[in-house]
Design a protein around this nucleic acid. Structure first.
Length: 668
RNA sequence: GCGCCCGUAGCUCAGUUGGAAAGAGCGUCUGCCUUCUAAGCAGAGGGUCGGGGGUUCGAAUCCCUCCGGGCGCGCCA
């Protein structure tokens, strides 16, 4: 609701200034520092003063006097050196906010609406998922929810690099270190915790290959066999990678993260996506065969130089950076494959995968996978994106840029603009945490704020271990409070709390910040955490549950209901009026501001904004909760009003948490 | 060397396109459970927003410079 009023005020000011002063200035608005100064402020007169060479305060006064009434705004005042402060019609805002919260969020998108494809998770299928992968998945999933909330049609892809070096290494391990047969590996892969087995094996293989450079031949040979896709090694790789993907999905299902399509690199290879892309790149002159120099024999893509050429100077004689796309031995690099893949995502490649059903998520949603042949009927029309987001850590910014540049050079400028790297920073460990995990830290690293871990060395916090710990911790708290509840109820509560804590822990940090992981913070259920927000919802639930036994009006109290008590309407203005109603009004205002925060979050691609909002609202509610006792309120009309406000807060908290993929239990 | 990111309270982090006196959580100290769940609330203490210049009516935010950290720049992915 806040967004609506704010926009009205901006628009009114822009129009007024254009009419009255014949000029266009950007009208910015912000919240004044105190509620007694209004709800929407604009410093626009400072900017206007500069242009018109008049004192800002006088201009502000002039505008405040002449401005036509704005819907939802009670009055506009001048403050400070020339601020325009708008005071909202509190009762109208509250009514509108209640109505808005009660409505269905957004109409579902038409089946042929422009589609956004988001790729996230994309864990190498050769070992267990760790905390860094969870940051990726949770960020991607929250962004998916945000976009769907705004009415966009979204398709979620999880890229599976099942033919890469990392898988090859594990197969080398099974064959040369473990001396396992295909059947033995098949049996292992069917057992639980296979991803943990591979985690350890991968570490040993890394060590093994490092000990003797000659052994790298094994990896190269293995990679070739896997890419070609036939023979016993390739079959083993297929078994291992697929089993690990199932492990990953089981882990991510614990978090409630769904996918529409698992796109596998093996199909990109076997269905010759690269050949098609190669032709396009050659024909349109995007890549050239280097005849001489250090890249002789390679197909390279010339990148536009980042550096600006100083004025008046010639282009530097040295060529701008060239990126190798096809190696001199004829094999294609990862970036080359990625260009082909992204042509497919946008429906520009002229080829398609076959598809098979692969996994049913706990909520019944079907995830499909790509196949080289024998597609199953009923597959949705995947791909053909209008816009693409790749959730990939910030270290891969450069190759992402190359893909974008490739699309642009091919003449797909629009698609290049709409291919966005949803970048985020890594999850590292605090030195203390690294020590707890038993990793050796070089003395020079000991005083660093965080330490990056190496998956190759088997370092890192495994996702399932962390979730297990969170569930155990939550379970302890639940048992202490709800001994009477049945086992299944307590397990469900503990699970919701654990996931709430984990998702919130990863989402409250903005994308560009390195997360310094620490068990103490990650396992906390107090303070700025998911459970804190969930707890606020639970408190409202408690009020409504208990209240229903005493007061009839508690029965149907969702915010969609009209603000009625008995036969009359609640006099909302009476309770929200300033200054006596200021504290209630601040809570109502915040509760009605979800739309503005969501808009900012979507615009900035920053789910952390919503996380922050959820906490702010929960905190404001807790203050209110301690100040106002609802059930014992004697004035029936006030009681009804407080109830409605409480209900609005719950709806908004639940909505905000929902966007983060967090559910609040009924009790906790 | 070139490029990107970061430096805000003891610690972990917010601070949306420059806007009114710098915020939160954790930790420390002090209070608050016969009333809707104390996973909570109230209060205290804690900051030259890395340093220095500049632009501006106004800078944590923009520009320059220096210091200190991280990452990327491969015929790896």
């Amino acid at each position: 609701m806040y967004k609506t009023v704010e926009n009205r005020i901006r628009k009114a000011l822009r129009h007024h200034i254009r009419e009255r002063y014949k000029t266009d200035v950007p009208v910015v608005t912000a919240r004044p520092p105190k509620i007694s100064m209004g709800e929407v402020a604009s410093p626009v007169c400072f900017e206007l003063a500069k242009q018109l060479k008049k004192p800002p305060r006088a201009l502000a006064q002039e505008i405040a006097n002449a401005l036509k009434p704005i819907e939802g705004v009670a009055r506009v005042e001048v403050a400070g050196g020339g601020y325009l402060n708008a005071f909202l019609d509190r009762a109208a805002f509250f009514r509108a906010a209640c109505e808005e919260a009660g409505r269905e969020a957004v109409a579902p998108p038409a089946p042929d609406a422009p589609k956004v494809v988001i790729e996230h998770t994309s864990v190498n299928p050769n070992k267990a998922a760790h905390i860094g992968h969870l940051r990726n998945a949770v960020l991607g999933d929250a962004f998916v929810r945000l976009l769907r909330h705004t009415g966009r049609r979204v398709e979620v892809h999880n890229y599976i690099d099942n033919t890469g070096v990392q898988v090859a290494d594990v197969i080398v391990g099974f064959l040369h270190l473990e001396k396992k047969s295909l059947e033995e590996v098949r049996a292992l892969a069917a057992a639980p915790k296979f991803d943990y087995v591979c985690w350890d094996l991968y570490t040993r293989v890394t060590q093994y290959l490092a000990e003797d450079k000659a052994r790298l031949e094994l990896r190269g040979q293995m990679l070739k066999e896997i890419e070609e896709g036939h023979g016993a090694s390739a079959e083993m790789a297929e078994i291992v990678a697929t089993a690990i993907v199932r492990c990953h999905l089981r882990t991510l299902d614990r978090l409630g993260i769904n996918y529409d399509l698992l796109s596998r690199e093996s199909e990109i290879l076997h269905l010759k996506f690269w050949d098609a892309a190669f032709e396009m790149l050659k024909q349109r002159g995007v890549i050239q065969l280097a005849a001489s120099g250090k890249n002789a024999g390679c197909w390279v893509m010339q990148l536009p130089s980042d550096r600006e050429t100083p004025e008046g100077e010639e282009e530097p004689t040295e060529m701008a950076e060239a990126k190798i796309i096809v190696r001199s031995n004829g094999t294609v690099t990862y970036v080359g494959k990625d260009i082909a893949y992204h042509l497919w995502k946008f429906g520009l490649l002229g080829r398609d995968f076959y598809y098979q059903r692969f996994h049913t998520h706990p909520d019944g949603h079907e995830a499909w996978t790509t196949a080289s042949e024998a597609g199953q009927a009923g597959a949705p029309a995947f791909g053909h994106a209008q816009e693409v987001f790749n959730v990939i850590d910030s270290r891969q910014a450069y190759p992402q840029q190359v893909v974008v540049a490739g699309l642009r050079s091919l003449g797909y400028a629009q698609e290049a603009d709409r291919l966005q790297h949803f970048s985020y920073n890594v999850v590292a460990l605090t030195p203390r945490c690294a020590r707890e995990m038993g990793y050796e830290i070089p003395p020079e690293d000991a005083k660093k704020p965080y330490i990056e871990v190496s998956g190759r060395k088997g370092q890192g916090v495994k996702a399932d271990d962390l979730i297990d710990q969170l569930e155990a911790g939550a379970r302890k708290e639940v048992d202490a409070r709800h001994a009477a509840e049945p086992e299944s109820e307590r397990a469900a509560m503990a699970h919701a709390i654990a996931i709430g804590a984990l998702r919130y822990f990863l989402l409250r940090i903005t994308r560009s910040t390195v997360i310094a992981f620490d068990f103490e913070d990650a396992l906390s259920f107090e303070g700025e955490t998911g459970p804190y927000v969930q707890y606020a919802v639970v408190r409202v639930n408690g009020i409504l549950r208990k209240g229903a036994e005493q007061h009839p009006e508690f029965e149907r109290v969702d915010a969609a209901n009209l603000l009625r008590i008995g036969s009359g309407e609640i006099d909302v203005a009476k309770f929200l009026g300033m200054p006596a109603g200021d504290d209630l009004w601040e809570l109502a205002l915040l509760a009605g501001s979800l739309d503005a925060r969501v808009e900012a979050a979507v615009g900035a691609h920053e789910p952390a904004f919503v996380a922050r909002y959820a906490f702010d609202l929960a905190q404001a509610f807790n203050v209110f909760y301690h100040k106002h006792h609802i059930l014992s309120e004697e004035d029936a009309e006030k009681r009804a009003f407080l109830l409605r406000l409480t209900s609005l807060v719950r709806e908004q908290l639940v909505a905000a948490l929902g966007l983060l993929g967090i559910t609040a239990p009924e009790k906790m």
